[in-house]
Simulated assay, not measured.
Amino acid sequence: MPSFDIVSEVDLHEVGNAVDQATREVDTRFDFKGSNAQFTLNGSDLSLAAQSDFQLQQMREILYAKFAKRGVDIGSLKTDPPQNVGRQVKQNVTLLQGIDSTLAKKIVKLIKDSKMKVQAAIQGDKVRVTGKKRDDLQECIAFLRSAGLEQPLQFDNFRD
């Protein structure tokens, strides 16, 4: 039976490259001279530090532009509110990896409520969708893309 997997993943290598490019741009910009503004990437956690809220906002815009150029979906970022720490303003950004159980249940419910001729099953941090025809699976992919879920989804492991 044909099947595919619904996943939500971020390429951490591309994230690292985007953070490096953003760091280089912040280091060379005149409005950041001597401000000790920095990005720190630790696994799937990213922290931004600057002297003011305005600089932090500028850093975020630079970072988002670099992510867009690298093909990293900004919808997969969870941004915490800025915090004043001493003379600096810091903000944490978390990269969302995998589909959590509430979103997986919502996806399965959407597929079942749409009355398509496919079955969806939760398998860890992904959802496997199977059906008898390839056209049914492609219809399901189109339906999920138009559903507007809160986390970006990728469809991989498509098998006939």
Rank of each mutant, 00 (worst) to 15 (best):
T130G: 01
T102C: 04
D53F: 13
E14F: 11
V19D: 06
K109A: 08
Q97G: 06
G98N: 10
I6E: 03
K126C: 03
A121T: 14
D11N: 15
N157R: 04
V10T: 14
D20C: 01
Q138D: 14
G34M: 13
E25D: 14
S101R: 15
M1N: 09
D113L: 08
V93Y: 04
V72R: 00
K33H: 03
M1S: 14
G71H: 14
A147R: 04
A37M: 04
V26F: 11
R159H: 02
R134M: 04
P82R: 07
S52R: 00
P82C: 04
K90Y: 03
V129P: 00
D100S: 00
Q21Y: 09
I141F: 01
A104R: 15
K132R: 13
V7F: 00
Q51K: 02
D45Q: 07
D45E: 14
V85S: 11
R145D: 05
N92P: 05
F32T: 07
D135G: 09
C140W: 05
Q151T: 07
S8G: 14
R60A: 15
N92T: 11
S8D: 07
I62H: 00
E150F: 00
I107G: 02
R145Y: 01
V15L: 11
D11W: 09
K106H: 12
S76P: 00
V93I: 15
K112Q: 13
R70H: 13
R87H: 14
E14R: 15
I74M: 04
L153G: 09
M1H: 14
I99W: 00
Q138A: 14
D80T: 13
I6S: 02
F155V: 03
G16N: 11
L46M: 10
E25Q: 13
I122L: 10
S76K: 03
V85I: 12
L63N: 01
K106L: 13
Q38G: 12
K33A: 14
F4R: 11
A50Q: 07
E9V: 12
